[in-house]
Design a protein around this nucleic acid. Structure first.
Lengths: 248, 248
DNA sequence: AAGTGGTCTAGACCACACG
DNA sequence: GTGTGGTCTAGACCACTTC
């Protein structure tokens, strides 16, 4: 079942990306759109809210919506998986488990995952056969047995956990900064010690709010960048919706 | 004029942050909240949409909303200014213009700002008197005269441009990655050449969609990190609202 | 089967931008 | 002043989760 507002959003997005509205141009008013699509104004507002969350259009009270961009990138909402992102962008990707062991949680991990033992996994992920990402992941005890059954060269852990245990990585919290490569980082990623890495620390939970993993992911500099669009002021329906993308 | 849904959101946020609902707990249903606040269901939905955009609660069709976190951080929506962020977080901050000159735009700048000359400004920003950020900003020609009038030690460029020219930095697009410090970066930030920097490249536009600046900002490693919360699946009112925060 | 959130309607009033 | 988006209401139906 596809919602009406999604169809309207798709149609408008298509027109914007096709260049029907150049950057800075005005969108039709809500009433015009409502008339054109035969929908209520509220439904049209929901549709343009989607575009606003994508950073394609902006709005302010009293003035018509304007077009802010005409390129679509991969939404961060879909980035709960390296594999999903790589596949969506047409990359050749792979992964290899380097090391895996159970251990007591650090205090930070215990605060996020609970008091049980964690399963500590070290993986290297490749893009076009080049190592670009080092994942150091601590899985919560309840999911550990499933993770231990995965093959070492599992291409998509997220997919595998969904298929075998129905686990969905629904919510994530991320901290992004830059760190120098440790000796181990350097060896596994093929860079010099101390060279810059883009670090993404994350905690993931299921739909029910049950914590699944904390991870420290390090990307080789130059391999990826995070892309974000944001806005201040009056946005439709939510006060602010930043949209994070993920691109080369 | 404060909207009703904002007041309701504030009230619920306060209860969550005060610990009335522990992590993973269920929020009251929309009808219960509507009855409690004497508001229509739509208004309550708008309120919880705010909390969802902040990453505090999550939702799925058929089940009650759950609490995902109980800490509030500075929203990235308000991060259009280093000074605003620093002030909000109680830091002592400052800035110094190192260099400023007009020059022809690079092709990338011309594509974003238009064909005119740009005003190229190099600034160092400090936190607790330590240099933490190097800003290399290219201002569009139309705003250049205003920027040239600013004092070299201007603490908040965003504020100054608003006060003197009514310019609002309304929309931003950001690319975040890690780079090694150049010789100049190293000298001005007091780090070794080649050491990791967190880079944020951004393009900013006004409410009307008029481009103001593109900038290449480099943070010393360890000084700041970007924080993001996101979710997949059915969110209220918008398909997905990632929320980006900015913290130490 | 009952309850919940997700979608949609058709109206109303207000604050703000623009001419 | 006119038109725009922002807020709010009061209803309806549907898809989903939960028991």
């Amino acid at each position: 079942m596809v919602a009406r507002y999604e169809l309207i959003a798709d149609e408008l997005r298509g027109e914007i990306l096709a260049g029907a509205y150049p950057m800075g141009a005005q969108l039709p008013s809500e009433s015009e759109l409502a008339a054109r699509f035969g929908a209520a104004r509220g439904t049209v507002r929901q549709a343009v809210a989607v575009l606003a969350a994508e950073g394609l259009v902006g709005s302010r009270q009293g003035a018509r919506r304007i077009v802010l961009g005409n390129a679509r990138s991969q939404s961060f909402a879909e980035l709960h998986s390296f594999a999903q992102w790589a596949r969506a962008n047409g990359h050749r990707y792979g992964g290899l488990m380097i090391n895996q062991r159970r251990r007591p949680p650090t205090p930070a991990e215990a605060a996020r995952l609970g008091p049980g033992e964690v399963l500590d996994v070290l993986r290297v992920r490749t893009l076009e056969d080049e190592p670009v990402l080092l994942e150091r992941t601590a899985y919560a005890e309840w999911i550990a047995p499933v993770v231990e059954e995965l093959p070492p060269d599992c291409e998509s852990v997220t997919q595998a956990l969904y298929d075998s245990a129905g686990v969905v990585f629904a919510y994530g919290e991320h901290l992004i900064d830059a760190v120098p490569a440790s000796a181990q980082d350097a060896r596994l990623l093929g860079v010099r010690r101390g060279s810059p890495l883009l670090r993404q620390r994350r905690v993931t939970t299921t739909h029910e709010g049950r914590p699944v993993e904390c991870s420290d992911d390090r990307y080789r500099a130059g391999s990826v960048a995070f892309s974000i669009r944001n806005s201040i002021g009056a946005n439709p329906l939510v006060r602010h919706a930043g949209d994070l993308h993920f691109g080369a």
